[in-house]
Design a protein around this nucleic acid. Sequence first.
DNA 1: CGTTTGACTACGC
DNA 2: CGCGTAGCCAAAC
Length: 151
Amino acid sequence: MNFPPDSKSYFEIVWKIVREIPSGVVSTYGQLASMIPPPPGVEEADYERYGAVWAGKAMNAVSSADSDDVPWQRVVNSQGGVSLPADSLAAAEQRQRLVQEGVAFSASGKINLNTYGWDGPPAEWLRENRLLTPKPLKKPNEDKPGQMRLF
DNA sequence: CGTTTGACTACGC
DNA sequence: CGCGTAGCCAAAC
């Protein structure tokens, strides 16, 4: 399917959402896309598949646009890892910025989304902006409800 | 003007 | 748990 007819406008929406991500937590490309309704003329199936790619392009466009206030470092891939070339300067900066915010990386360079994953903006904010409920950053398996920890 | 290349993911080994 | 692949297309080379 084609790139959104008005990619600039799509980017703006992505940036708007990213600005809502609090310090110390992270979102993913897929989660961002899940909050944005499919642009006009885009089949839902296609959107589900490539929405994350568009979110990535939106992030790619950040530094070169009037979007310096977008906390781009808080967007990672579905596995909780930095998606820039591992040896790039930008990747190093992203990791550093996140650590500065208190986000921890595992030995393999991944962030535990169960701990640092974003739940999304308040329902009211979503409604005001005509956006959808984000897909959870999952793995309900690890923090078993009902299983209490004794210290 | 043909090729390569992405700030993605889910899926299969 | 890690690596490769498909699907898709605009842009940079």
